[in-house]
Amino acid sequence: MRSLPPLASLRAFEAAGRLLSFQDAARELGLTPTAISHQVRLLEQSCGKPLFQRRPRPLSLTPAGATLLSRVSKGLDLFAEGFEAISDRQQQRLKVTATNAFAARWLMPRVPSWRALRPDIGLDIMGSDTVLDLVGGEVDVAIRYARQAPKGLVCSEIGRDNYLVVASPSLVGRGPLDFTPQDLSRYPLIDGQWTDDFLNPPMWFEWVRLARERWSDVPDLAGHASLSFREDLHGIEAAIAGYGIAICSDILVAPELASGALVRVSSLALEGYAFIAAHRPNHPRQQTIKAFEAWIAECFRAMMSTDHQRS
């Protein structure tokens, strides 16, 4: 007889491990972060080992957690495939990949809109900052984030973002605010970690470079950054929590800017990149993919129109 932990604990652990965030896992599964934490604790008690390093932040997997995550993810995929294979009402499914931040903060909140439009087509959303294989069929559609469209694929640009200097009102007040570089140097700063393949990434050193074209005597703000994150999600959460001033994509923090959870503190913005929908040329489900890409482009246009009216 198999000795297995509750499926709810496995699902909560898999989502938290994949997203490296209890809050994002809760959003994905329709639960609270407390419920995710409780289920993970139950699983840790069951196996007798910690699965996450919770301190210092950001959240990370222990070696045992990484080993378990690989196997649980494969197991849940097999469960899903098995259920789909025997389902009387087998639904078409579209595998979509995007960066972790875009998947969690932009795409997931709009899934109900897709379900209302195309209830016959389910979405398998894979957040990953690793480029997954479109040609080999690992995924059907990728939302790539780049200056230019990748070669050898059918691509359509959805839109572009800008990077704004933002902070929590609990740290800087509500404004209106337009800090000078000297003002910014008096606060803790949050920076991002970008790979070398991104040209002029929106980090503090790039902001300083542009600021020196506008002002004299600009301090080296990159050297003032007290926190640095590889994941955009973690940097955004740190800014919301009031840990420092960050440079964030206006697309990813649009809800917080609208609600006032974050405020813009400088008029100087950095140019971002393009969100590009891509699929392989010979994909057998061209019409389904075109419908998805048209929907996501329309969602983007609607969001930009709302932001323009608000401003």
Rank of each mutant, 00 (worst) to 15 (best):
Ile125Asp: 01
Val253Gln: 10
Ala101Ile: 11
Val139His: 02
Lys49Tyr: 12
Ile236Leu: 03
Arg27Thr: 14
Thr306Ile: 15
Asp88Ser: 15
Phe205Leu: 15
Leu76Gly: 00
Ala12Lys: 02
Arg118Leu: 05
Ser266Met: 04
Pro281Asn: 04
Ser37His: 14
Arg147Trp: 13
Leu221Ala: 05
Ala25Asn: 08
Ala26Gly: 04
Val218Asp: 04
Leu221Thr: 08
Arg71Val: 14
Met1Gly: 13
Met126Tyr: 15
Asp77Val: 13
Phe198Cys: 12
Arg55Thr: 12
Cys248Thr: 07
Gln92Asn: 12
Asp120Trp: 05
Pro284Gln: 05
Phe83Tyr: 13
Cys155Glu: 11
Leu20Pro: 09
Leu233Pro: 03
Gln182Phe: 09
Ser216Phe: 14
Asp133Thr: 00
Ser170Met: 11
Phe275Thr: 15
Arg93His: 09
Leu31Ser: 03
Ala149Trp: 08
Ile236Ser: 09
Gly82Ser: 07
Glu84His: 08
Arg93Glu: 08
Ile190Arg: 10
Thr62Val: 01
Leu134Ile: 05
Thr195Ile: 14
Arg285Leu: 12
Leu164Gly: 07
Leu42Ser: 14
Ser46Thr: 15
Ile245Val: 01
Leu252Ser: 07
Trp114Ala: 02
Phe22Asn: 07
Phe179Ile: 04
Gln39Glu: 05
Glu81Met: 11
Arg18Gly: 12
Ser311Gly: 15
Phe13Ile: 09
Thr288Glu: 08
Arg214Lys: 05
Arg2Phe: 12
Glu237Pro: 02
Ser37Cys: 13
His224Ala: 12
Val166Asp: 06
Ser185Asp: 07
Asp120Pro: 05
Leu153Cys: 08
Ile125Ser: 10
Ala103His: 10
Val96Lys: 04
Phe275Glu: 02
Gly235Tyr: 04
Leu252His: 01
Gly75Cys: 13
Glu138Tyr: 14
Trp215Asp: 03
His308Cys: 15
Ile289Pro: 03
Ile86Asp: 00
Ile251Ser: 04
Glu231Ile: 15
Gln286Glu: 01
Arg105Thr: 05
Glu213Pro: 03
Pro50Phe: 11
Gly152Trp: 09
Leu164Val: 13
His224Ser: 13
Ser46Leu: 15
Ala64Arg: 11
Gly82Asp: 06
Glu237Tyr: 09
Ser3Asp: 13
Ala222Cys: 11
Ala149Cys: 07
Asn100Trp: 06
Ser259Phe: 04
Leu227Val: 09
Ser311Lys: 13
Asp133Ser: 01
Phe229Pro: 02
Ala239Cys: 06
Ile247His: 06
Leu153Gln: 09
Thr99Gln: 00
Asp120Met: 09
Asp129Ser: 04
Lys49Cys: 10
Pro109Glu: 07
Arg110Glu: 08
Ala16Gly: 07
Asp250Lys: 02
Gln92Arg: 14
Glu206Cys: 13
Val96Ser: 03
Asp120Ala: 02
Glu28Pro: 02
Phe22His: 02
Asp183Lys: 05
Thr288Asp: 04
Pro58Phe: 11
Gly260Ala: 01
Lys290Gly: 14
Ala26Asp: 04
Arg160Gly: 06
Leu94His: 00
Leu233Thr: 12
